[in-house]
Nucleic acid binder design. Structure first.
Lengths: 224, 224
DNA sequence: ATTTCGCATTTTGAATACAAAAATTGAACG
DNA sequence: CGTTCAATTTTTGTATTCAAAATGCGAAAT
């Protein structure tokens, strides 16, 4: 037998693939909050039977993305301000924890990467590229979570973030908030570089709290 | 129509009922960590078809209680020391958060209940009733979480606690740890009574950290 | 004209059936 | 004896079927 083995062929179960696709559709906003999910329609769309689709819906229900009402089918969960009000402190606490843990185990290379990302974020800010900014911003937070070396935490945060990522499309943030956010990230990077856990934790917590305060304000303003 | 309405009749879906039953079996330890879950066997046991059972397994997988391996079926997730090491800081952070939030909205009546529970815990300690102590202890933590008025947080903590509750049966804690835990609870109640969030948060975090340290030590000792 | 009721249609819940993969058995061979 | 490999059995993944509940619609009644 050859020593060079082929990549392990992956035969992912349908329900897994479906859950991924649906999760993306919901988070990206292609399936709107409150929108009814017709089993038949989606089955036709994806060309699968109802069995794996229903299994996928159960997964998304547990993740908080889908609401299942007995005998009445599935719908995309609404995302009210109250929901955000509940979620943000949780994300803040977990984010702070991830930062504190990251300080214990982050490598020099990772700090270097974080620096690069920070630089790119500033670039995006300067040229007003909000879309790319969001991406890089996400990359920074994701790097910190990865550096925490806690896969359970990473999974929980992925889940919590997935629920609120939809809020992005719910309101436009102000330029002021953007400016403040960039400054906050500067401080975060600084604390991370020095592996100063006792400073990084609160910084992240505050950062998330501010993010929410701005979002909340924008939402309340928009809905009038 | 009468003003006295009947209670809403509940017809729970089978997969929900099954998920509850299985969750209990796993948490209580009737289904052991690592144990293989035969679909056919459980279907016969519960007298249901595979469809709702499989849906229930998907739910438990998302909750981290069940491991699904493609084409190879389900098994109860193992609970290694590494897993606990990942989970405890998370629970600590969430518990601290719940305490801080609780300080903002807990009622006098709830504080009174907490006092009663504390008194009963001391009683249990004095007469060496470990089983009942665990129950009351759980009730205290549950009360704090409820007083946080954050259902999302409550759900997350229920899930996280569910994963580790099984560890109870993995090792015997020392009398010393028990003594310390009772003292810690005394301090927690005191901070809660005064609604002192900045004191309660760290107390809870430390309490959870100590709990884990003791468990970890006991596990390492036992497994030799 | 509006409401109510009954019937047909659609949709969901659960069981069964079928296909594909893995596990098991056992016989042949060393 | 142990190993290998093919055939059988079991188990899992998916589709289909059947039953029950909800929805939609039109006729009858007020």
């Amino acid at each position: 037998m050859s020593t060079v083995l082929g990549a392990p062929i992956e035969r992912r179960p349908l329900h897994e693939e479906l859950a991924d696709q649906l999760r993306r559709l919901i988070i990206e906003g292609d399936l709107r909050p409150g929108e009814k999910i017709s089993e038949k329609l989606l089955c036709d769309q994806f060309a699968v039977s109802r069995t794996p689709l229903r299994e996928a819906l159960k997964i998304l229900m547990t993740e908080g993305l889908v609401l299942l009402t007995p005998n009445r089918g599935a719908s995309v969960t609404e995302l009210t301000i109250d929901d955000l009000e509940e979620l943000f402190p949780i994300i803040g606490a977990l984010e702070a924890l991830s930062g504190e843990l990251a300080c214990q185990s982050i490598t020099d290379e990772e700090i270097e990467s974080a620096r690069d990302l920070q630089a790119e974020m500033v670039e995006c800010y300067k040229r007003g590229d909000l879309h790319r900014y969001f991406e890089v911003n996400e990359a920074v937070h994701s790097l910190i979570v990865r550096a925490s070396r806690n896969t359970t935490l990473a999974q929980m945060m992925r889940n919590a973030s997935g629920r609120i990522r939809r809020a992005r499309y719910m309101a436009n943030l102000s330029k002021d908030r953007w400016t403040a956010a960039v400054a906050e990230h500067e401080a975060i990077l600084s604390a991370l570089s020095k592996r100063d856990a006792s400073r990084l934790g609160p910084l992240l917590k505050t950062h998330i709290a501010n993010k929410f305060a701005a979002l909340r304000e924008a939402l309340l303003r928009d809905q009038q």
